[in-house]
Design a binder for these strands. Structure first.
Lengths: 355, 355
DNA sequence: CTGAAAGCGCTTACAG
DNA sequence: CTGAAAGCGCTTACAG
């Protein structure tokens, strides 16, 4: 139990308002007095009480803006669930959010939506940034305005943000390679990589992490080709079909991004279901079905729920009492196999939603 | 933003104290008035504000008792970290805990320690129960005293508790079998099961979940024997050595419980490191080293951090405003392979601690 | 049975 | 530059 502001006021022989001015760098206080109060605070290891702060917040009310490319992307279903629950938990403390979404990645759209949120008056921004100079410039602007920013799911290389919550794409590629390697059992394994786009940093990192591990630990795994499907099911299906004709002895497919359902259907159509190892990412309803069926060997999930929940929580804490989150909060690369889908019971909140 | 007790008082034309009496079933209120107030509260969908409750709590102060068999068991390191962080988060709201620990499982010791905690005056109990009639009886007693109880890591069959946080042992056995099955690649795989004790329900469930999946999906996997090591490293080492002599073509070992380090050292001593597949549970420092080395193929972790964090949080919420947790909060069966150990960065709180 | 007051720890106008 | 008061939403003695 820490001391309260009232007790510090008593010790210093001043009013609570004055202690507040000293502790929170508010203007209009004698520097000597301020120093004296701060010394006392340090001596007794004063830390502000969150219950008091939170109750006080209800007079101000906090609003966060959230912007994300979630339209038509099932990955974001659990992200939204995480956001919803964080907001639900914090609503009593005066928090609300405004959410704007877009379909796919458009720099202009992202800029527009963020500006719209700013116009509506938000005290913090949470978004999935596109790595583009215009976005970086906007972040600089936000910093000047003292509006803190959290990124999630994808980070931005340059440009200042408070923290990132999401996948480490290199690590997830390494995990995928570790799996493929175990499945190869030290024997040759002809593997095709189907990626989303060579323009997308995360996809490339999933390939480079993969290569690193294959090279170091599993040299018998042979990568026959790297194809692109633009996260599109139809393209993925066509390219997988062609690949299976070209390499009829293909033994594994590594899907770094979207287009999973298209690829899987092609595999089934060609009669390779269960005969070829398939490793994918994330867990949509369709991926789940393929996993149950045994067509997908394993999928690597990146805790989407946490990617929604934590940015809200961390930003709230930061604005409440200045608690700084770590630069990067990496989510776990969760290997999911068919047997995970058998689970029959209620489950904690940070677990893939059923269906 | 929900309405406050003040507004309900205004609507009903009574004082806030009276509203409080109606809402919280406190004695000394006219039944008709109570009914009228409750109706208003329902109409405006009143829900108590956590910020207000929490600040009020500081006058009462809440103390939980925690009892667990953590001595000499590294599994509990992350459990304690989870407890510590939950308490840290909630200390501002008036929470503190008293922790008593024991080595191994002794019914008498457990009873003693719980009684000691009760004598010191706790408002809630969190513990790893031994499934024994005496413990069940104690739980009945606690229920009469209106002291809520959370179990974690192991549940108790009969006997009332608010909720359980922990592993589903059947599911974790299924997951292990799924892994072994994938590694078998549909070919025969001679597998030894080394269990802790056939007296322990959880260990048996890990075997029965394993059998279920093998029978259904991977009939080529052959279980040569089930041995017991009493969670003891030396016994595990000796029995694994003997087994490797008896079945020199053994291809996999499934370790359901403790004694992992002993088993692994025997495997290395016999020259089987990297040649035999090993699936274990949990992630101690030693398990981590064997995983990095490639001796352990995969280990299945059960989110020990969450097993510490969530019971504290859930019990606090329950005592704060009556929020009932689900009957069982199951932790995820996290498959960890060598590549997970390469992760180089800071990480969210619910992730295995590094070391 | 009901109300008015005080308090939990903080912040925010408003006086002086 | 500093203090006294009021308020955030709730609970808890204390009067009546």
């Amino acid at each position: 139990m820490s001391v309260s502001i009232r007790e510090i006021a008593k010790m210093a022989g001043v009013s609570r308002g004055t202690v507040d001015r000293a502790l929170n760098d508010r203007p209009g206080i004698n520097p000597d007095l301020k120093a004296r109060i701060l010394k006392i605070a340090r001596d007794v290891d004063y830390r502000s009480n969150r219950a008091g702060l939170m109750l006080g917040l209800r007079k101000k009310l906090l609003c966060f803006g959230i912007q994300m490319p979630s339209e038509g992307n099932d990955f974001f279903i659990d992200v939204r669930r995480g956001i919803r629950e964080a907001v639900h938990e914090l609503a009593d403390f005066g928090l609300s959010v405004k959410i704007l979404t877009m379909k796919g990645f458009s720099v202009e759209k992202q800029l527009d939506q963020i500006r719209q949120l700013l116009d509506e008056g938000i005290q913090g921004l949470i978004f999935v940034p596109i790595d583009h100079p215009k976005i970086t410039a906007l972040l600089d602007e936000l910093q000047e305005k003292q509006i803190p920013v959290m990124t999630f799911n994808n980070d931005i290389e340059h440009g200042c943000r408070l923290s990132y919550v999401g996948n480490d794409y290199i690590a997830s590629g390494q995990t995928a390679a570790g799996l493929i390697g175990l499945l190869s059992d030290g024997k040759p394994l002809k593997t095709l990589i189907m990626t989303g786009s060579v323009q997308v940093l995360g996809h490339n990192q999933r390939i480079s992490g993969f290569h690193q591990v294959i090279k170091k630990y599993y040299p018998s795994v042979e990568i026959v080709d790297v194809l692109e499907c633009q996260d599109d099911d139809q393209t993925a299906g066509e390219k997988v079909s062609e690949a299976l004709e070209r390499w009829p002895h293909l033994q594994a497919i590594y899907l770094t991004a979207g287009g999973v359902a298209g690829a899987c259907e092609a595999i089934r159509r060609k009669g390779y279901a269960g005969k070829i190892k398939v490793v994918s990412f994330d867990l949509t309803a369709r991926t789940q079905a393929f996993l149950k069926e045994g067509l997908i060997t394993a999928t690597i999930e990146q805790e989407p729920y946490q990617q929604g929940y934590r940015p809200v929580k961390l930003l709230f804490d930061y604005l409440l009492d200045g608690t700084k989150p770590p630069q990067r909060c990496l989510t776990h690369n969760r290997i999911l196999i068919r047997e995970h889908m058998l689970i029959s019971d209620t489950i904690g909140t940070d677990v893939p939603s059923k269906e």
